[in-house]
Amino acid sequence: MVRAAAASRLPAAGNDPWSALAGFRVGAAPSLEAAVQHGGQTYRAALQPGERPAPPVLIDGDDIVVFEAGEAWAFTEPHAQGLEDSGAGDGKVISPMPGRIVAIHAAEGDTVAKGQPLITLEAMKMEHNLVAPFAGKLGRLSVKVGDQTAEGVTLAVLVPEG
């Protein structure tokens, strides 16, 4: 898995004398190391020069996607930015999927308890409740019932009490 993602970062073996000699060490088997990130963690793999990934790999923008056993694992190059805060810590209530706002359970300025439903989002005939990540006051509410939203949009911001 990691090996495939890492191998996709190597140049393909060719006649270019520089890449053909990558990892060459006198008196030892050639070896290379490449790193990739997944979920904020860095993984390293030792590779052979010119090694190609075994499972299928898709390079999609900044994502290195490895397909294995029906799963799709997305890696990035190690210098790429890690995942932004998921919203639990900074009080942002972020849409986890595109959909329609079907209900709003609190108004700006309301005091809410941890776990209290704030917004109900509907997509594909299923409803999903977005709940308060901690107790606090609802600072800003950026949507109204009936709005369509994309994935990753900040719908509301919660301010910690006190």
Binding site: P56, L58, D60, D63, V65, F67, E68, A69, G70, A72, A74
Partner: peptide, 8 residues
């Protein structure tokens, strides 16, 4: 099923 490749 193991061969399915879908992204994103």
């Amino acid at each position: 099923c193991r061969q399915v490749q879908v992204w994103p």
